[in-house]
Amino acid sequence: MNTILVAVMVLGATALVLAGVLFVVSKKFAVKEDPRVGQVAEVLPQANCGGCGFPGCAGFADACVKAGSLDGLLCPVGGQAVMTQVAEILGLSAGAAEPKVAVVRCNGTCEHRPRTVVYDGAVSCKIAHATGCGETGCAYGCLGCGDCVKACQFDAIRMNPETGLPEVDADKCTACGACVKACPRMIIELRNKGRNGRRMVVLCVNKDKGALTRKACEVGCIGCSKCQKVCPFEAITIANNLAYIDYEKCKLCRKCEDECPQHSIVAVNFPVRKPKPAPEAEAPKAAEAPKATEAPEATQKS
């Protein structure tokens, strides 16, 4: 009996002392934090992808609380819904933002862009990029080592072994921008998803002169500026032998696609065209269009 009592008392006393220590420590070393940071962090997706440009969700929450307005602050993963919640907590108004998706601007498949040498270094685009212009003659195109795949936290980007190019799953892509940062050649761009996911994109970033580009790749943009001339909306600019379609201005008329001699301009998620003439198909047909992957689209084009 006595032993039990002693044991209980000793352990009880130890517990008390330790509880006291814990109490003192928690008071003394408490970090003062705006309680709203925690609240904001709670509504965030906690993917910690860094897509917002801050170190993780906690960092983003902190920035939201400290900033006076939410302009320019966007959680690409949670999107508009989450930002509205954040705005509610902070008593601010959320800015509107168009949903975006990552687009791989290279169509140099094995078929279009023959491999001339073999790269045998570590499997990393960054290293391949530092080593030389890669396995093909194109010094701007996709290296195919999959740094973007490794960077994606949402499993939205995969390498297609047939084309040797990464493909973005538009449904899973949250436009966090991790792949954009990971690509040493800045091939991936965040573009507006567009109506029904339809987009017109120049799938090329080659800045070489036309002759060199053509030598390296069948579908490389040669900067001939035919598309620029045909575009009724002035959405296309040519710089450094390369065309670029401004997705804000593009009205998806598809005129440039027909004009492009290199077939570098690709229409994504449009219904498959009937032989000719091709009237803009009705909405239901759009659903039949193949999935939102860029590269196969390009190869399937009739």
């Binding site: 270094g121 570590a122 990393s124 960054k126 290293i127 530092a130």
Partner: peptide
């Protein structure tokens, strides 16, 4: 292992 490849990347 391509040790030097990675080290070069890190060094740069």
């Amino acid at each position: 292992r391509p040790l030097l490849d990675w080290i070069r990347l890190a060094k740069n």
